[in-house]
Design a protein around this nucleic acid. Structure first.
Lengths: 211, 211
DNA sequence: AGCGTTAAGTTAACACCGTTAATTATTTGT
DNA sequence: ACAAATAATTAACGGTGTTAACTTAACGCT
């Protein structure tokens, strides 16, 4: 009921309050089940107030994705400090998978839910910034192995390798997230599937055997 | 307006009419945008009539999935005729990917959309039936290569291999379906990504080089 | 033949959803 | 002290999945 002209900082704070609680609800109840009214009730505002900060539900979702993409990049950044390029690449894949399986609902939102196409102009994130762009990080990690001569000679396109390696880890994580409870398949432990995937791709990629 | 007691056959026919038109709408408009009323209008019935054949929208979706799973198994069945186990395995992966990319909306429904857990009792499909269960087909294809001694000696769990290979192809297809239009990534051609994925996994799996 | 039961369909209605319009209350500047 | 602007609200709209109540037609019996 009581509105006050707010400082820019206070506006941003409320924006974050919405995002955080909306994310919380998505994580605990799944993406489909969350309504604008519920988000609003959670933060003690009316539903329409959300529209003062986000154009619509889709925009709110995208804003959540933005902060999650940033979180992913921040998580993975530490791994870039590993000295050996191949070890770094392996750890990067494991870090990615851990993120996916620790925050499955975030991951669904980011990589398994169709949104409007993600033009770089629609986000605050900076493309090709090693602090913010996890895909750029991946390209660098892969390219460093390439430059170190680690890959087989037939493999000449580092970006193609990056996209394929990504797809491999994504495939394992995505099936786990969507079908883990499915009785049709007798799933092997997720750790085993991740390890085998990395093993297979590594021995396909690397010039010399690695263990 | 005019109801007549229907033979079992006529009931099944109407059920299929609903499924077919519902699938049509999902494919052309995307999964989210389809409403029960729209499906009903399309077939010239009222919306509530659908509930005489399906408990709710989720059940309708699952019934559509059922027929699509059968379609996938039927498509892949021809490939099982290939004599050489390794060639068969390669062709199987390619056939799977072609299905995914030819019917992306079916594929999303089947493998990228969370439904209630898929207990074998809830479907008419027969598990472990080579005509109906594509996952069983995959297990057989992998196991045949295993029995023929094609895999490296360290690889002893055929089902684990099957699940990992599946994840690899799924990863490429799923990223393509969900992010192909995304400007953030400069995607390599999907055929290249599929080929590299198969190449990587093959050279990780097979005892001897294959080309 | 006529009557009740049942099946197949309908329309009406409910509760809820995302979203927009109209409205209220509070602060600030002059 | 008053007007403008801001931040919030309530009311309302059109649409959704779904349930309840009702209608119509066909069948089985006596």
């Amino acid at each position: 009921m009581p509105p006050k002209p707010k400082t820019e900082q206070a506006r941003e704070q409320l924006r974050m309050l919405i995002i955080d609680h909306a994310r919380d609800l998505f994580v605990s109840k799944g993406i489909e089940a969350v309504t604008m009214r519920e988000i609003a009730k959670r933060i003690g505002y009316s539903a329409t107030s959300i529209y003062l900060h986000f154009a619509d539900k889709e925009a709110l979702l995208r804003a959540i994705c933005d902060t999650d993409f940033l979180r992913l990049a921040t998580t993975l950044k530490e791994i870039l400090a590993i000295a050996d390029p191949i070890e770094r690449m392996i750890a990067f894949g494991q870090g990615y998978a851990r993120f996916a399986l620790t925050y499955p609902n975030h991951y669904r939102l980011m990589f398994m839910t169709p949104h409007l196409p993600y033009t770089p102009s629609q986000t605050a994130l900076q493309q090709n910034n090693a602090e913010q762009d996890a895909y750029f990080q991946l390209k660098m990690v892969i390219n460093d192995v390439y430059l170190a001569g680690g890959f087989k000679d037939a493999l000449q396109d580092a970006e193609l390798i990056a996209q394929t390696v990504w797809a491999g880890m994504h495939g394992v994580c995505a099936l786990q997230i969507i079908m883990a409870e499915d009785d049709w398949i007798q799933w092997r432990p997720i750790e085993d599937r991740l390890n085998v995937m990395q093993q297979l791709m590594l021995s396909g990629l690397l010039k010399e055997k690695y263990e």
